[in-house]
């Protein structure tokens, strides 16, 4: 077991040197979390949660390592825009990690670097010790824009991955039908994406990605384009699916509620340049039920404290 007296003990986050003072200040601020998580592990009776690390055959090991990654874009005015500055982050296997930050902080870019879609200007990202050089079926993306193939039906979209992996057509179809049923779209197999609502499209996109069994799900504000009601339903369904087979999830969002509700760990980013401000362990019991969690003072405290931290940095930004 990792040292439980500090909620951030398991995070291998190294900030830039010039950031030392700031992170020191934040460290002091985040002490209440350490206390809260301490209290919880002792007080709350969660035998299943508590026992898990002991019974599992292998200890939680790093699956993704981001090592001093920076990303610089050229703006139209030929100026360098630093989207990401010296980011280091380790993500453990089977963890649900959210990257939370204001728009323009480079959180999606970080996800694309892990996906292999974007090559960082400097630094490197590794998946299971191997440097990431391009996209691969071990890392499955789900985009805010759904990005479904409009010329394929729901079934055709979901079958695409398995077929590309060389799975036989009949087998791929059977697997895909099961997945479509799992995401709650039984009966819509032969619909085209244009005939579905936004929430249904995102369910198809999730099924399409799950179909080729990626070890890591990379979710880029997946529920950002949906209305509030559909959003909460999809969050619940995602949690149910995730709690069943516990893939590693890297989840980009700008919603504090969403990040706290879903994650084991929230990575807070600040913008211009994009940096990791803080990594917070969300020590809330699983399986999480929305109705219980919203009433849980610990959940509420996480949300309020994270929002306060963002507000403070905004004010600091205005003052400077």
């Amino acid at each position: 077991m990792k040292a439980p007296q500090n909620g951030r003990g398991s995070n291998d986050v190294s900030h830039g040197c010039e950031n030392r003072r700031l992170s020191g200040r934040l460290l002091a601020k985040s002490v209440p979390y350490a206390k809260a998580s301490d209290g919880m592990t002792v007080v709350s009776a969660r035998p299943s949660e508590w026992v898990r690390p002991v019974t599992s055959k292998e200890p939680a090991s790093a699956i993704i390592e981001i090592d001093r990654v920076s990303q610089v874009f050229q703006t139209s005015a030929r100026r360098d825009h630093v989207a990401l500055s010296d980011i280091s982050l380790t993500i453990e296997e089977r963890a649900f990690v959210s990257i939370l930050g204001p728009s323009g902080c480079g959180k999606s870019t970080l996800l694309y670097i892990v996906g292999g879609f974007v090559t960082p200007t400097s630094g490197a990202a590794k998946m299971k010790g191997q440097a990431i050089t391009g996209p691969g079926p071990d890392r499955g993306p789900v985009f805010q824009e759904f990005a479904l193939f409009p010329w394929k039906t729901v079934l055709g979209n979901v079958m695409y991955g398995p077929r590309q992996q060389g799975v036989r057509a009949t087998e791929a179809e059977a697997q895909s039908l099961a997945l479509i049923e799992m995401v709650g779209l039984k009966g819509y197999e032969n619909f085209y994406p244009k005939e579905l609502s936004g929430g249904m499209k995102q369910r198809v996109a999730l099924a399409r990605t799950l179909a080729y069994h990626p070890e890591v799900l990379l979710m880029d504000e997946p529920f950002g384009a949906l209305d509030a009601h559909t959003r909460t339903r999809l969050q619940n369904d995602l949690l149910n699916i995730w709690e069943r087979d516990r893939k590693t999830v890297l989840f980009v969002t700008h919603s504090v509620d969403e990040a706290v509700f879903l994650s084991d760990k929230v990575v807070m980013m600040s913008k211009s340049p994009g940096r990791i401000r803080e990594v917070i362990d969300i020590d809330l019991p699983r399986p999480r039920r929305r109705s219980e969690l919203l009433l849980d003072p610990r959940y509420q405290k996480y949300v309020v404290d994270i929002e306060r931290m963002f507000d403070e940095s905004d004010e600091a930004g205005i003052a400077s």
């Binding site: 879609f117 996209p135 079926p137 890392r139 993306p141 010329w151 695409y160 991955g161 590309q164 990626p214």
Partner: peptide, 28 residues
């Protein structure tokens, strides 16, 4: 759309086949 291409590449489509599997149908 870039993300159509990314989705296909992540699903295991090699770069050389992206043209026929994604670009051509998407440009239809």
């Amino acid at each position: 759309e870039q993300k159509l291409i990314w989705s296909a590449m992540a699903a295991g489509t090699p770069r050389t086949q992206i043209l026929f599997r994604v670009v051509l149908p998407a440009a239809m």
